[in-house]
Write a protein that binds this DNA or RNA. Structure first.
Lengths: 320, 320
DNA sequence: CCTCCATATGTCGATATCGCCCCTATTTAT
DNA sequence: ATAAATAGGGGCGATATCGACATATGGAGG
């Protein structure tokens, strides 16, 4: 069985902790795979120093630093340390990545690495994700990419993107799953004390309503909703608060916030519920009543739609 | 409010990914704390190059590399890259750490870093943890330390140890919780897409019975238990299989495996149940029957005792 | 001055959805 | 064994949403 070469691209500003973590992860997975000597490929991880101003890699690990120039089957773009990479810096690298992808190389990004990935143009019309705080920035720079920051990892077959500073664990495990099989993946996860992939970014992202749209009437409605925590979201009430006709409020509210009034109110209620679940001990039924649902079933359904977890699951995961 | 100095000790063989990850974590936590400008201290993270053969730290982050020699309130010992640190290498560092601790500095270790921590002698008679694969090694080298690899993190106030390659996230968040408060901690966890601390190592460690003790009669009993997956663990049967008197079997079994026969059988059944929960979809009641319990309530209790989670919780966490 | 075009607003009906009430199965805890 | 909590389903009124269309509003240019 041939070796499988995984390259980690240290572009200018790349975050080293993720890069090193990934090499460790693949190292561990490779050892586990060797022990169970299936007919699986041997993993070889290399770090590729893309441009000049990159700090030197530590020479600690002999296996991880095979710096010959054999082509990699997978190239990983780690997160960026601070702001996402600028287009002018990215351009030459993007061209190089495009070539590699043309030769059949798989590309993967983590968090801010998605910006470099998008600069290649290969994401046009395809799905991708990145950290939720980058969402607006990304959509502005790459309007033709279908960004979905609710998900933690989007697998497009030859292109994978993962969102979030620590999502390199999920990405790494997903690659291990693909190349070395689910059993090795599960064992690697146990060895590293990481939960197997399958979570979503929206578990963590919360609700941050847009308030900078400049539509004063809509803002009035938003403030009203905020004030009573989304409990009274009747269209008539909101229209009166905003001083607009119902149909007009509906339209302008959507344009300004990206959400309908009920969606907005529901998200507020869910956010309140998340807080109560995380920091309190009230039973779910009580919480559903607290946030404005007299029926716990209805509340559960809404909660699950936005968070991706049932209230109980959420409490389990986030209540210390 | 005074600055809080956190030092990450790069001893020879220390794993950089955890060290860098921790500086990132504290950086993020610090920013979140600043934004909500409570009266909390400012975090200053420094990496301390303990001895010669350590690769240079990347100069990427100005805040993280304040290399003045002010004393730190906390010193963190990251995991070791490969084998745990050797006593002769550790000795001078251990002495230095002992001095710092004497001055009131808090010490924390991650995974293999616990060996260096133990070399200081400060763990004598106290509790600590490390990665479960190091358990035997550690107990042999430091028999006077109360090692508990079931737990992920053991907080002894002035000395904290965490077990597992990735447990630096839990350690970091715990420190953030202590110094910057629970709210900043929760926000940091969300930002980093990490679950808040509270998990235990035994969720992941599974059951790896001792088979190298060299007691052939006990081995026969073990193989018998393995063969029927712990369903028949009657002492009479086992004694006959091993060719030993019942009382003798009990004594030798405990000495060789560290467990009683019933404990051993229960762990086997629980391990089988874990597999069924992870890879199958049977309801818990069916599984409890499959592994040999006619009463689901009893099964639940046993399962929780060994794993630390109820069967349902376990399925939620590990079933993809 | 008026036309043309783009954008924003009101009216109304069809449809989708929400929130509530009822029920049951599963899991957990006592 | 029993009770509590949770998750899920089906049905039903009330209401929100959205399409389509008609109607302002407001420049830009002839």
């Amino acid at each position: 069985m041939e070796d499988l070469r995984i390259g980690i691209v240290l572009y200018p500003g790349a975050q080293l902790s993720a890069a090193l973590g990934l090499t460790d992860l693949f190292l561990i997975a490779g050892r586990i795979a060797e022990r169970s000597d299936q007919g699986v490929p041997r993993l070889r991880v290399q770090t590729l120093q893309a441009c000049e101003p990159v700090p030197p890699m530590p020479a600690g690990d002999p296996e991880a630093s095979g710096h010959d120039n054999a082509p990699c089957q997978v190239l990983i773009l780690p997160p960026s340390l601070e702001a996402p990479i600028q287009p002018d810096v990215a351009a030459p690298l993007a061209a190089w990545l495009r070539e590699r992808h043309g030769e059949g190389t798989m590309l993967a990004s983590v968090c801010g690495g998605a910006f470099l990935l998008a600069e290649t143009g290969l994401l046009s019309g395809r799905g991708a994700t990145t950290h939720w705080t980058y969402a607006e920035d990304f959509r502005e720079r790459f309007p033709d990419v279908a960004l979905d920051t609710d998900r933690l990892i989007i697998d497009g077959g030859d292109i994978i993107s993962a969102g979030g500073l620590m999502s390199w664990t999920d990405l790494g495990l997903k690659l291990v799953d693909r190349f070395l099989g689910p059993v090795v993946m599960a064992q690697t996860a146990r060895m590293m004390l990481v939960d197997p992939p399958g979570r979503e970014q929206r578990y963590y992202s919360g609700f941050a309503p847009r308030l900078t749209h400049g539509d004063a009437a809509v803002l009035k409605a938003q403030h009203f909703l905020q004030a009573n925590e989304g409990r009274d979201a009747r269209l008539a009430t909101l229209a009166e608060e905003a001083g607009l006709e119902e149909r007009t409020l509906l339209r302008r509210f959507q344009k300004a916030t990206g959400l309908t009034t009920t969606e907005y109110a529901q998200r507020l209620r869910v956010a309140k519920a998340q807080e109560l679940l995380q920091f309190g001990r009230l039973p779910v039924e009580r919480i559903s009543w607290e946030v404005g649902y007299s029926d716990a079933g209805a509340f559960r359904k809404i909660f699950h739609r936005y968070v991706g977890l049932t209230p109980g699951e959420y409490r389990q995961r986030f209540h210390a």
